[in-house]
Every structure is written in structure tokens, then in C-alpha cells.
């Protein structure tokens, strides 16, 4: 073999990799690096801060991080999102699994229509669905409250301080259920029918087939949807922001991402916002990979 062909062979993989590496670098690594850089800087104002040259960007060390970590609003938003996640993720995945199993059962009728109907809310942008639900939540414009009034029920506003988290969680479940159901349903469809036949011969009913065969087989899909839902939960933003003008109960720092937005665009403090974003990104990374590590043996062992 000549040396030139060896060289050609050693160049080729890099040439193939180049576009992906370039795109990754330009649109992911570079912005992340810039965000980290911004998070270590701050703007210092001098005197009255009016006119030219009264502000300059200086190194801030980790002060933006310590500010974010000690901010009671940030801690409150993290706790709120944790509570929100405890509501949303099990409800969404539970219903998604239930609907997928029901659609997959041999006795299901009109499955095409039902599948589409359940999936459809996923196609509605979060801002639109929040507006729709917002109207349903406001007592004096909601058809639901109109009916409650006719029946004579006194239903308090769901946007009140105790229940607003359910109001937001409901929108997320409504919007995300369809996607997760389709993922699980697709996994169910991939199960070879021989397994069911064998199970039936062994005397399994539909319910025990679902519980003993279907659920364990789609476990990897469940884990994947869990990780996606976890990430989506940490990044919840559009629903509370859209509902915010309708109520007193959603503050500008209701979720961590809302705090990032407020710092960057309401307070014009990109540096604090960058620090909080980095914290949020690290937390997302740790949580999702930590979870995957924790479950990988259980979930994927049967595949190997």
C-alpha cells in the first residue's frame, strides 16, 4: 500500500466529519462558550450613569453565580418547578401509557381517529394552547364556569394562588400527552405477535399481557419519554408566561427560565441571566444523565 493512499484514507473521515463539527461548533459550542464568558462578566456603572463612558464591562469572577444561587426568588422557582414536575411527568406518562395500551388492545375501535385526536394537541403551539386554556380558566368568560353557574356550583378560580400550578400543569399534560403516547404506541407495535400468542397459550388475559409483556418491553421508550419530559419540565416557560397577564399569582420569576428572561430582557442584565442559564443547563445535564445512568442496566440489559 502506498503512503499517499494511507494519507487519503486518514483525511477522509475528517472531511466527512467537518460539516457536523463546524455546525456544532458555530451554533452550539460557540454560543455556550459565549454564555459562560458573559456569566463571568458584569457591567459597572460610574456616578449617575448618564452619558458616554459611564458604563464598562468588567470581570465579575463567580459573583453572578453566587448572586443567582443565593437569590430567594431563584430557590423558590426551583422548588416550584420540582413540584410542577412531580405533577406533570407522572400524569403525562401515565396517561400516555394508558392510552397507548388501550389503542393497542385488540378490542379498540376507531383507533386511527382516537390516535389523531389524542395526538392533535401536540401540534398546537404552547402559547396558543395556553391562551385557549386561559379563556377556560377565567370565570367570567369561561363556558365551563357558565355551566357551573347554571348548575349552581361555586367553583373558585383555578388561577388562584393555591391552584395555579395545577392550571399550568394541566396545559402541559394536555399538550404533551399525544407525543409521548405515539412514542410508546410505536414501540408497542414493534412487539412480535408470536409473544402474545405464546402468552395466550399460557393463559394470559389482556390485562396480564399488558402488565407482564407490553410494559416491560416498552420500558426503554418510557425511559426516553421520561427524560424528555424531565428536560421539558426544567424548561417550562411558554405556558406560565402566557397565563401571567391574566392573574396575580404568576410572578416574573415563577420558573427558573422566566427568571432568566426577566434578568436578560426586563432588567437588561445579560450577565446574571447567563449565569442562571449555565446553572440551569448543568442541572439539566446532571439530572438527565444521572437518571439514564441509574436506569440503564435495568432498561437496556435485555437488549444486549
Amino acid at each position: 500500500m502506498s503512503s499517499s493512499s494511507i494519507r487519503r484514507r486518514s483525511v477522509a473521515p475528517y472531511a466527512f466529519l467537518a460539516p457536523a463539527v463546524l455546525l456544532f461548533g458555530a451554533f452550539l459550542a460557540l454560543p455556550i462558550g459565549y454564555a459562560v464568558y458573559l456569566s463571568l462578566r458584569t457591567v459597572k456603572v460610574r456616578g449617575l450613569g448618564l452619558g458616554k463612558g459611564s458604563r464598562e464591562q468588567v470581570w465579575a469572577g463567580l459573583s453572578n453565580y453566587s448572586k443567582a444561587m443565593t437569590d430567594p426568588d431563584f430557590a423558590a422557582s426551583v422548588l416550584r418547578v420540582a413540584a410542577y414536575g412531580v405533577l406533570v411527568v407522572p400524569a403525562m406518562l401515565g396517561f400516555a401509557l394508558l392510552f397507548a395500551l388501550l389503542l393497542d388492545s385488540p378490542r379498540a375501535r376507531a383507533t386511527k381517529f382516537a390516535r389523531l385526536a389524542i395526538f392533535l394537541p401536540y401540534a398546537v403551539p404552547a402559547v396558543i394552547s395556553s391562551l385557549l386554556w386561559g379563556f377556560l380558566y377565567l370565570p367570567s368568560v369561561s363556558p365551563l364556569y357558565y355551566v357551573f353557574g347554571k348548575v349552581g356550583w361555586e367553583v373558585p378560580s383555578v388561577l388562584g394562588s393555591g391552584s395555579v400550578i395545577y392550571a399550568v400543569a394541566n396545559i402541559a399534560v394536555w399538550g404533551g400527552l399525544g407525543f409521548n403516547m405515539v412514542v410508546i404506541y410505536t414501540a408497542l407495535k414493534a412487539i412480535p405477535t408470536e409473544i402474545y400468542e405464546a402468552a395466550k397459550l399460557d393463559g394470559c388475559g389482556e390485562i396480564s399481557i399488558a402488565w407482564r409483556i407490553k410494559v416491560p418491553v416498552v420500558l426503554p421508550s418510557l425511559i426516553m419519554t421520561f427524560v424528555f419530559s424531565l428536560i421539558a419540565t426544567l424548561q417550562v416557560f411558554a405556558e406560565p408566561v402566557t397565563l401571567r397577564p391574566l392573574t396575580n399569582t404568576i410572578s416574573s420569576t415563577w420558573t427558573p427560565l422566566m427568571k432568566v428572561y426577566r434578568d436578560a430582557f426586563t432588567r437588561d442584565d445579560l450577565h446574571s441571566a447567563a449565569a442562571t442559564s449555565v446553572i440551569l443547563a448543568v442541572a439539566t445535564f446532571v439530572l438527565s444523565f444521572g437518571f439514564l445512568r441509574l436506569v440503564q442496566n435495568r432498561a437496556f440489559s435485555q437488549e444486549n
Binding site: G134, F135, L138, V141, P245, L246, N248
Partner: peptide
């Protein structure tokens, strides 16, 4: 005690 400029306020 409800905010202005909401569908409810309009109603």
C-alpha cells in the same frame, strides 16, 4: 383585585 387588560376585565 384582578388585573386590567384581561378578557375577564373586558367582559
Amino acid at each position: 383585585n384582578l388585573p386590567m387588560y384581561t378578557p375577564e376585565w373586558n367582559a
